[in-house]
């Protein structure tokens, strides 16, 4: 009994820290403000916050406790696209935090071509990702 209580405490503590970590990461990278800025939906900011919280919670429950749902496979295509957009945002935010592109384009005096470099980053991600799934892993 005591051991069970202790294990529950371990689980709770771990969950608290991991949850805090997810929120901290998303906050540091300014992901939600960026979504809000692009879509001009400031008044729904709080809903987005809850979307993140519920997303983390439901996926945890789904992963740990759910039985297979036997849903049609094409639904995964939709889910996959959403996952990709989020990861793309994450990657772009990381690149931006590290300040790579402004300094690179300033130093090499290629500021006029900045938009091509963003395209390069985005397409590099697409190609790298497809390569990973379709060739590298097979």
């Amino acid at each position: 009994m005591i051991i069970s209580l202790f294990l529950a405490l371990v689980g709770l503590s771990g969950g608290l820290i991991v949850g805090g970590g997810i929120v901290a990461l998303i906050t540091v990278l300014d992901l939600i403000p960026r979504f809000v800025q692009i879509t001009k939906t400031d008044q729904y900011l709080l809903h987005f916050q809850w979307a993140v919280v519920f997303g983390a919670f439901f996926f945890t429950v789904f992963d740990f406790f759910s039985a297979p749902l036997y849903l049609p496979v094409f639904l995964l295509g939709i889910v996959g696209a959403f996952m990709g957009i989020f990861v793309g945002f994450l990657g772009a935010a990381l690149t931006e935090v590290l300040n790579v592109i402004p300094i690179l384009s300033k130093r090499m005096q290629v500021y006029d071509y900045l938009h091509w470099f963003i395209i390069a980053l985005a397409f590099g991600k697409i190609v790298g990702s497809l390569f990973h799934w379709m060739i590298y892993l097979k």
Partner: peptide, 20 residues
Amino acid sequence: IIQIPYSLGVGAGMILFFNH
């Protein structure tokens, strides 16, 4: 079926982030 839309989404997300 997940991974191909996912890959395209990664690129779309980046371009969206930079709002280009």
